[in-house]
Design a protein around this nucleic acid. Sequence first.
RNA 1: GGCCCCGUGGUCAAGCGGUUAAGACAUCGCCCUUUCACGGCGGAGACAUGGGUUCGAUUCCCGUCGGGGUCACCA
Length: 551
Amino acid sequence: MNYKDLADLIFPNAKEISYYEEKYPERNLPEGAIVSRFAPSPTGFVHIGGLYQALVALEMTKKTKGVFFLRVEDTDQKREVENGVTGIVNSLKDFNMVPDEGMITETEEIGKYGPYKQSLRKDIYEAYAKYLLEQGKAYPCFCTSEQVEEIRKKQEAAKIRPGYYGVWAKCRNLTVEESIEKIKNGEKYIIRFKSPGREDRKIKHHDIIKGNVDFPENDQDIVIIKADGLPTYHFAHAVDDHLMRTTHVIRSDEWLSSVALHLQLFHELGFKAPKYAHISPIMKNDNGNKRKLSKRKDPEAAVSYYKEEGIPVNAVKEYLLNIANSTFENWRRANPDKDMEEFDFQLNKMSVSGALFDMIKLLDIGKTVISKMTAEEVYENSLNWAKKYDKELEELLQDKEYSLKVFGIERGNKKPRKDISKWSDVKNSIVYMFDNKFLNENVVYEYVKINNKEEINKILQAYINEFFDINDEKDTWFNKIKDLAEKCGYAREVKEFKENPEKWPGHVGDISTVLRIALTGRQNTPDMYEIMQVLGKDSVIKRLEKAIAKN
RNA sequence: GGCCCCGUGGUCAAGCGGUUAAGACAUCGCCCUUUCACGGCGGAGACAUGGGUUCGAUUCCCGUCGGGGUCACCA
């Protein structure tokens, strides 16, 4: 009896690995093309850190004309969630990050290197596990979880390194005959990797982001096939990324300490190891301590948050790119109108330590992104967001032609307005422009400097009767407001008022403020001339009359 | 605790042996301006710490401290 007999007993139907090696040949790609992937577990939501990794991988594959694929790592059925794959696919789609290969719906996929869902690759893992078994590089382990736990406790008590290795790996030294007999007796088992490593030896690893890192060799006989017949992450990673011909594994740096194991696995399986790039996670300040963004505590950890809040997709991506390569910011300033895809992303320029998430900066980017959009784009985005999250805004936006005029205020010039950083800001910034709301609502007019009722009414009435003409050009229009100021006994110019403040009760700016508040119910608005032009003659008069009536 | 990674203003960060230690966001002041937003100008604000090495260390080495990661039949 030999290893072959044992392997045949455990996996009688597994194919030869040559079958898979031929089925998934080397990819025919140009020199330097990077093949990378996003490989999440369908556990419920996509984390912003996951999106970050995916973005980085996508940038690199696009830049090198390679392949970016989506693989679903669903080997832990306990944690799986209904429609988890759909959630992942849709989240990527929301950010216009569509993979070249992989899952496209809950059950469908595209690409020749599939299946892209690990639970569907069981036969493949078995073939490779069998391959290891045949060579004595893996073995069945009959220890129960309780026994393994006991070993760990003993190790802890003795203050020695915990784990299933060396002398502690009881089943590692079972003879083939003993193993076969146990299996035939119906004893339960899992498959472990027989590590050839020694803890007192070091291996060198070059990580694209972290640089040179030395680790002790792995000597743990880790589980490769679990009791449920599915592989563990480590084994699946080696088999899948080899067969899918991944050139670059771009993943979160919580995996860094596993590379010693992974490299060993690749070596023992006879695979060429991929290059690794371990990304520092996005952190959050928690009472002075840094910690990873957590789904439970931080709403902004889930990518769905950005969609709900209406933070523009490109703002999120630019912010992430900014964290990834700080040169992006300079590039953006030099190329304000270029598509972000044109930025030359550098993997090795990524920061080695984790950045604290900065919502304020994100929103600042959002402001700039939106300020560069046309009125039409702002309209479309606002409407799409409103349809899902704000019925009232959706109703406001029914009159497209008028909405476009509203969004066109102070837009499209060299210094566009920057007062909207996310779609959820839109309603507040435009509601007062809509007559069916404004004229029918109980507006509270909070006058400031000039707050005497008679005085206000006198100003408003005089403006309607003697000065307002919707057809005036801007200069004429403003001169008339100065005339109004003068007529009411106020200074025509702010400057002359400041020189002799005792001479007048106020100046043209105070008069403008009265008009602005009467017109919009607000102290602060965009350019009042443009507002009047958009509102139109009738609306302006109705609004001023309403303000008079309310006094 | 073992192993690994990291430590430049409040935040993101350039710089990597000799710099007045960039820039962005935030903050403060001024200017522009009929308000706000924008824009312009300016201010305040940093090399964790102790030893080396060196003519000279933010940059190199070691220790300390601080932060993070990892030590599963989870990924």
